[in-house]
Design a binder for these strands. Structure first.
Length: 289
DNA sequence: TATATCTCCTGCGGGC
DNA sequence: TGCCCGCAGGAGATAT
């Protein structure tokens, strides 16, 4: 599942393989893949055709290609299962191919997405807090790998909320790029249960969990991201290996690497949470969910 | 206004 | 073998 490290791997691949190329034509093969582009498929294809890809940028899990001469951005979200593949056009069409762009470099840029949670949309670039981002991404906070990420300010925002720490880690308007996998890993490293209330945690403990998120995502990035199946791959169709290094996520009933206690799985926000019952004791009375 | 919950979607695996 | 159901989960919409 693509979270920040996986998206960054894809961004780097796009930067290496398609920046500088121009778009000759675009085929939209599934309307849901462009549902966030309100003017529709014909408009998206028309606006992209003839544009030159001038750069590949990212904030959190949002990725965008800067286009010239229009200066708009093609915003890409991979959702649960999206892939941006750079392929020779003669390669067979993928089963879940949603969008195909033909480039003047002789390659295809393909958007493949089994579960159709992801998609493409065009957006003008606007300046937010000193950075140029698509206006549809303006509400997304800086991610922990951003050189201008302000840890102290983020700690303050988190402490100012009255909710559970895991909810805040998943709130992209507070800190971006963290999904269910890295939230569980960061909480495990910081030895904090995800149901702990933010306004009852000390500043140093919140700082510890944010720093842990930063560390775990940096490590994942060096290993090409996390992959459980063929759903997440880089632009060449290769999977990452970080899933072999996970301590909590997906480790139900396996021994905690720190204390040996069996990792437990709980339902949280309609999804699964994994934690060590000894290292990460739950608050005495969990808030109603 | 802040927080919580629902919904979208597809393929896989388990149970019957 | 085939059908049904639960599960996976990011993010916007809707409810509280």
């Amino acid at each position: 599942m693509p979270e920040l490290p996986e998206v960054e791997v894809v961004r780097r691949g796009l930067e290496r393989h398609i920046v500088g190329a121009s778009i000759d034509s675009v085929d939209i093969l599934h309307p849901r893949a462009i549902r966030r582009h309100l003017p529709g498929a014909a408009d998206l294809a028309g606006q992209l055709t003839g544009e030159r890809i001038a750069g590949a940028d990212r904030r959190g899990k949002y990725l965008w290609l800067v286009l010239e001469p229009s200066t708009v951005a093609l915003v890409v979200h991979l959702g649960m299962s999206g892939q941006m593949l750079v392929q020779p056009p003669e390669l067979p069409t993928e089963k879940h191919l949603r969008i195909r762009a033909r480039l003047d470099s002789g390659l295809d840029l393909r958007f493949v997405d089994q579960r159709t949670f992801g998609g493409w949309a065009l957006a003008p670039l606007v300046e937010v807090d000193g950075s140029l981002v698509p206006d549809s991404v303006a509400h997304i906070a800086r991610d922990p790998l951003d050189p201008r990420f302000d840890l102290a300010a983020t700690v303050k925002v988190v402490r100012g909320k009255h909710t559970e720490i895991k909810r805040v880690l998943l709130d992209q308007t507070v800190v971006s790029g963290i999904g269910n996998i890295y939230a569980d890993e960061a909480l495990w490293r910081a030895q904090i249960h995800g149901n702990r209330l933010t306004d009852r945690l000390t500043g140093p403990r919140i700082r510890a969990v944010l720093t842990a998120a930063q560390q775990v995502m940096r490590e994942a990035l060096t290993q090409g991201g996390t992959s459980f199946d063929a759903l997440y791959v880089n632009v060449n169709g290769e999977s990452g290996y970080f899933d072999r290094s996970l301590s909590a996520y997906g480790q139900e009933d396996r021994p905690c690497p720190r204390c040996g206690t069996a990792i437990r799985r709980e339902k949280f926000m309609n999804r699964s949470s994994f934690s060590c019952p000894k290292c990460q004791p739950a608050p005495r009375r969990s808030p109603a969910r």
